[in-house]
């Protein structure tokens, strides 16, 4: 699924990486525990999380995660935006909570 489709489905705001929205992701991971993301996440996924701190961006960097969606109205801080820009990671945010956000993407064909 293209990231622009993810954005459309979740009515998400784009914080970084507008030029990368045509990129494809093949799976998604909804999680607030970065340790679990590090244990189980596949490559080329979009991460959905309600956790806001710099380690979310670091975790994505280590795992080659190309895009992060902050759920339930959470917004990235300026240091997170700066690091994501530097590392080429797309940041989105949506008012939709984690469970329905995952459900909407799953229903649209993005499997886990």
């Amino acid at each position: 699924m293209q990231l622009c489709k993810v954005q459309e489905i979740l009515e998400a705001k784009v914080w970084t990486g507008t030029e990368k929205l045509e990129k494809e992701v093949y799976s998604a991971c909804g999680c607030d525990l970065m340790s679990d993301v590090l244990a189980f996440a596949k490559e080329k996924i979009v991460l959905l999380t309600g956790l806001i701190n710099l380690q979310v961006i670091r975790t994505a960097e280590m795992l080659d995660i190309k895009a992060i969606v902050f759920v339930r109205g959470k917004e990235p801080t300026s240091d997170m935006i700066d690091l994501a820009k530097e590392r080429g990671i797309v940041l989105l945010s949506t008012g939709v909570p984690l469970y329905p956000a995952c459900g909407l993407l799953y229903e649209a064909g993005l499997r886990g």
Binding site: L33, M34, L38, L51, V56, T59
Partner: peptide
């Protein structure tokens, strides 16, 4: 609260 402490650190290092 920071998103760590799930007890996966050492198992992940081994994995």
């Amino acid at each position: 609260e920071l998103g760590f402490g799930a007890g996966m650190g050492l198992p992940n290092m081994k994995r």
